[in-house]
Design a binder for these strands. Structure first.
Lengths: 270, 270
DNA sequence: TTGCTCCTCACGTCACGTGAGGTGGC
DNA sequence: TTGCTCCTCACGTCACGTGAGGTGGC
């Protein structure tokens, strides 16, 4: 007995608003079982209640509609479960990030204008292998870490050891548009055969103002703000990508991470 | 030495995108220290870096811009801390809700079309005191619970005891537009003097299909779906608000909550 | 017949992102 | 002088919400 319900009643049964139901019809996520051809009145079947409830739950979890659609269209329980688990994992990540941000917030609000120690460094051009990419802000940490992992493998496969720390270059666009060129690289002593995404690369010589950032990458803006202010107030700045050296890149506690931030400065400045 | 920075450099220092900075200027959240009158070029002072970082942190936590503005404009540290804490508490709540939703999701996906036991009940008109309101979806749980708390106080102050469970009526609009009339009420035996928001109220007589919902209010859509389907498939339905009786409304574990959902049905149906 | 439910546009919301098209500064 | 940085519209995004103005069904 597939009883039919008006949109209003269906809304009461499912706790989805009438506006939301019409929207789901428009985008084809949840089509009414029947539509009166003359009046356009939507009629829902009671058998659609469970689907509506599932949609409701996922939207409560802020799952994007296209993903909800994918979950509902999953060919089997396995595929569906995988989609659900993927979303839950992303939520877990977001949650962890939120925790970190909250933790750093109080410190930021109470911070006593801590002056960061800045060191000048003049580095020559270096041989390296690198992976280039046009990377979005949110993917950058993950992209850089997997790229470096790949590069370490290539260097090891060639029987060499890296001649310097895990590093990366970030273009101005990357900061200004939150999407731009990023180069992950590892310095090496001898040329080696490129493979996969890895390419030989010459890291240009540069004069740098360097500071050490201790802690999570999410707090890196502190180091950037302090270092950039330092450089700007002394009129040392010049163009060029910013470098990061990941001195300690894997730590159980993110407080143990160590990253050098290197700001390009004019030749001769010291 | 208040050095001035172009918008691009300031973006690199603060990790806010250029588009975001222009937006913050437009809405007056973060005005550049200076704007070139002829070219319109924005110039930021290094002293604005800390403010920008604070904005960045709060936006990372999804604090609405108007609240960020309020935090920045707070007259003293106390006021600012209160605003921050209020936001963190709201985040905590959201987090707890997310946990609950996740917990119920698996059950929902694996549910074996559990049939809910439905009971018919014919209730006479009842004397009650009530608080009325036009309530939005998200505020409803809190609003109803505080209203009932107030009503219990009024009844106790009159030397009476409630003649029935904590209850509420929900209009169709409340479900369909996610905002509408809600009446929180307590049945009483003798008339008593209204006070505060409380008013005397006659709960109308009704024929009801009733089911018992066990667990969190966030899962209530399950009971609504099952009960509504039951009523619709038997063509029992009639108009009128839906009632909830909060048999167990305060429990350390939300799994212990007990709520009756009462759906209006035609007279004579059984 | 009244009023209630439902309908379809069209536009608003929020915090920016995405171009287009153009100008200033080194 | 070139090209790079910056500018200002205007419109898009996402998942609906908010009316306006109108029609169908009991």
């Amino acid at each position: 007995m597939p009883a039919l319900l008006s949109i209003g009643k269906f809304s009461q049964l499912t706790h989805l608003s009438v506006k939301a139901l019409r929207h789901y019809d428009d985008i084809g996520l949840l089509k009414p079982a029947d539509v009166d051809p003359s009046s356009g009145y939507r009629r829902y079947a009671t058998s659609q209640v469970p689907v509506a409830q599932i949609i409701h739950r996922f939207r409560d979890l802020d799952m994007p509609i296209e993903e909800v659609r994918a979950v509902l269209a999953a060919p089997d329980i396995d595929a569906r479960d995988r989609a659900v688990i993927a979303h839950l994992e992303r939520m877990q990540e977001t949650l962890a990030q939120t925790q970190e941000t909250v933790a750093s917030l109080q410190a930021l609000l109470e911070r006593a204008e801590s002056s960061v120690p800045v060191e000048y460094r003049s580095v020559p051009a270096m041989r390296a292998i690198a992976i280039h990419g046009d990377i979005g802000w949110d993917q950058s940490v993950r992209w850089v870490s997997t790229a470096l992992c790949e590069l370490r493998d290539v260097v090891a496969a060639a029987g060499q050891r890296p001649a310097g720390p895990d590093s990366a270059l970030f273009s101005a666009d990357f900061f200004e548009a939150h999407s731009g060129d990023v180069v992950a690289y590892l310095p090496i002593r001898e040329p080696l055969e490129a493979s996969g995404r890895a390419e030989l690369f010459e890291v240009p010589a540069a004069n740098l103002a360097v500071t050490l950032h201790c802690g999570s990458y999410r707090d890196m803006d502190q180091a950037y703000g302090a270092l950039g202010t330092f450089v700007v107030e002394r009129v040392l700045g010049t163009d060029g990508p910013i470098r990061e050296h990941f001195l300690v890149a894997n730590a159980a506690d993110s407080a143990d991470l160590r990253t050098e931030v290197c700001w390009p400065i004019r030749a001769g400045a010291r």
